[in-house]
């Protein structure tokens, strides 16, 4: 699947920015993910929820982007993720990312927790 990033406000809470990822985030596609995400964060959108429903695969370079976003938003907002596939979750878990970032099973879970 072709890699794609979509950035927009959450329908249920407009001050939250939802970043939707599609395809694979690897060394090749990570720079685009970083560019799109940092553009949103740079505009003051510090409450970020990454929707990984369309994400097939993530490499360490992709996880590096999460760390960059986290360091940018953690003082004023947050970075959280949802809809992780088992494989992607495992990548997060192995590195211990789940220790520094809130991970939600799905959107319902995320809405309940954030609201």
């Amino acid at each position: 699947m072709e890699f794609k990033v979509e950035v927009g406000p959450a329908s249920w809470k407009p001050d939250i920015t939802v970043i939707k990822l599609f395809g694979s985030v690897d060394a090749q596609t990570a720079p685009l993910f970083e560019k799109e995400a940092m553009a949103a964060v740079g505009k003051g959108k510090k409450k970020v929820l990454v929707d990984c429903a369309g994400l097939d695969f993530i490499s360490s370079a992709g996880i590096g982007v999460f760390m960059v976003i986290l360091s940018e938003v953690e003082a004023e907002g947050f970075l959280r993720v949802m809809n992780l596939s088992d494989e992607v979750y495992e990548s997060f878990e192995i590195l211990g990312i789940n220790e520094v970032m809130e991970i939600y099973k799905d959107e319902k879970d995320a809405r309940r927790a954030i609201a």
Partner: peptide, 17 residues
């Protein structure tokens, strides 16, 4: 083995995990 990658978390979190 449990543990988090070097550079991700502060010393406390790293050592705890």
């Amino acid at each position: 083995c449990k543990g988090i990658a070097l550079g991700i978390g502060a010393a406390q979190l790293f050592e705890r995990r």
